[in-house]
Computed example of a mutant assay.
Amino acid sequence: MASDHAKMPVLESTLTCPACGHQETAIMPTDACLFFHDCSACGALLKPKPGDCCVFCSYGSVPCPPVQLQGRGCCSG
């Protein structure tokens, strides 16, 4: 087994709802952006902040995998 940990993105991120402060851990997709997320506590619809590519980059404890690996947004063209 090769030790390739430096190139492996973290796939688990804790989202914090800006409306109520509720935190929940989610697994980030590696092949798609998550533009919307419903807070399981208050029902608020989380959307990316201007300049962010997804809800993980805006409200997560860890940015999305493309940002981790490439330093840029996964959906910015």
Rank of each mutant, 00 (worst) to 15 (best):
P9H: 05
P29A: 02
M28L: 14
G21Q: 09
C54E: 08
G43C: 03
K7L: 14
G51E: 09
C75S: 15
S40Q: 11
T25Q: 10
M1G: 15
T14F: 02
C39R: 03
Y59S: 01
D38F: 04
C53M: 06
P63H: 02
V55I: 15
S3P: 00
G43H: 04
A6D: 03
L69H: 07
V55A: 02
D31H: 14
H37Y: 15
E24M: 08
T30P: 02
Q70D: 00
G77W: 07
I27D: 14
S3N: 11
G21R: 12
A6K: 14
T30H: 09
G73R: 11
H37S: 06
E24Q: 10
F56N: 11
P48W: 00
L45E: 13
A2P: 15
V62S: 08
K7Q: 12
L15N: 10
S76Q: 15
F36R: 09
S40F: 02
S61L: 01
D4P: 07
Q68L: 10
P9S: 10
C42K: 08
A41S: 12
M28D: 05
C17F: 09
A32C: 10
P65T: 06
A32N: 12
K7D: 09
G73F: 04
S58Y: 05
G60E: 13
V62M: 12
T30L: 13
C20R: 11
C54K: 00
P18T: 00
P48S: 00
P63T: 08
F56I: 02
P65V: 05
T25D: 13
D52A: 06
G43A: 04
P63Y: 01
V62W: 01
A26I: 12
G60P: 09
C53W: 01
K47H: 08
A41G: 00
C74I: 10
Q68S: 08
S58T: 07
A2K: 13
A2Y: 09
H37R: 12
M28Q: 07
C20Q: 10
C17D: 12
S58D: 05
S13L: 06
R72A: 03
I27M: 14
G21M: 07
K7M: 12
A2R: 12
Q23N: 10
K7T: 14
F36K: 12
A32P: 11
Q23V: 02
P65S: 10
C57G: 11
P63C: 04
L45W: 04
L46Q: 04
C53N: 03
M28G: 03
L15A: 08
G77M: 11
C74W: 02
G51K: 06
L11N: 09
T14E: 14
G71H: 05
P9Y: 08
P66L: 12
G71C: 05
A2I: 12
T14K: 03
A32Y: 01
